[in-house]
């Protein structure tokens, strides 16, 4: 059941993220970026966190209980920091772009075409 809910959550987030990211509104596109990163983080979580019900303490390991994998959570922690950093940078740049161009439609931000 947990697996199914997890898969549904990852799939929904991916779908929403891709849809938002392809929008012309730059703010919505940036939100899509954040959603996609969350989808990937959940995917990483799903690769190990539900291998066992109990926490990975040494006593549990000694008893031979199936424990969840602690490494994936450390991995996501790093991935969250990285994605949060890029999201903040992206929003800062959306802010600058909107001030310079007075609009946030990606079709109208096209000074680079030469």
């Amino acid at each position: 059941m947990e697996d199914l809910a997890m898969a549904a959550a990852i799939g929904t987030l991916f779908g929403m993220g891709v849809f938002q990211m392809l929008r012309r509104d730059l703010v919505k596109a940036a939100m899509g970026f954040a959603l996609l990163f969350n989808a990937v983080n959940l995917f990483i979580l799903s690769t190990g966190a539900y291998r066992g019900a109990s926490a990975p303490y040494t006593t549990n390991l000694a008893d031979g209980k199936a424990t969840s994998d602690p490494l994936v959570q450390a991995l996501i922690l790093t991935a969250i920091v990285v994605s949060f950093g890029s999201y903040a940078l992206l929003l800062a740049m959306v802010n600058l772009v909107s001030r310079r161009f007075n609009r946030i439609d990606s079709d109208e931000v096209k000074e680079l075409i030469n």
Binding site: M21, A29, F33, L36, F37, V40, F43, I44, T47, A79, V82, S86, L89, L90, M93, V94, L96, V97, R100, V109, E111, L112
Partner: peptide
């Protein structure tokens, strides 16, 4: 530079997602 960097951050972010998915 701002517009180019913005564009690259989006595209590179997509690449990063692919990389992270592959790693997972």
């Amino acid at each position: 530079g701002l517009e180019a960097a913005f564009k690259y951050l989006f595209i590179s972010g997509t690449g990063t997602l692919l990389l992270l998915l592959g790693i997972a």
